[in-house]
Design a protein around this nucleic acid. Sequence first.
DNA 1: GGCGATTTGTGCGTATGTATC
DNA 2: CGATACATACGCACAAATCGC
Lengths: 81, 81
Amino acid sequence: MESLDIDYDAPLAPHRQIAEWIKRAIESGELLPDRPIPSEKTIMDMTGVARTTARRAIAALRDEGIVYTVMGRGSYTSRRP
Amino acid sequence: MESLDIDYDAPLAPHRQIAEWIKRAIESGELLPDRPIPSEKTIMDMTGVARTTARRAIAALRDEGIVYTVMGRGSYTSRRP
DNA sequence: GGCGATTTGTGCGTATGTATC
DNA sequence: CGATACATACGCACAAATCGC
């Protein structure tokens, strides 16, 4: 996965930009089903956002059913339905 | 609505205690459909929690479809389905 | 339309608890 | 036991929307 430049002037909020970015990586097959997505810390390092923002992005994907989270381990792409 | 004592040692997280408290007020008819629920500030004052916690409580109710939020105005109980 | 008060939205920092490895 | 990762809480600041005067 390549890094992501956050556009703070864009109409789309940063946490949404990150969510879309991860979603694209899943759709392109770069992130495989049942495999980990970047951790909160990794997202922080790759984009420069705060942990809050990284967490919001993951929470959004979780709400959409695109990823699931396992406490103490990380977040993973959902298996294909 | 009477105030709420948060039990920080309870197994239920504070933001969930607040969500359940508001849900009870709705079910008892104390909070009517399409009428405002306590604002984040009011929840902070009534319970002593931080704004983050008040927001999480409202977000949980929003996720459950129990309330809806309008920026700059507040959150309101959803109309009966 | 301006202005202030209120309220929600977003971003950032920090700490503690818990679970996994 | 230590490192990592998520869950929850606390704080603060500023932006944006709404409303009443």
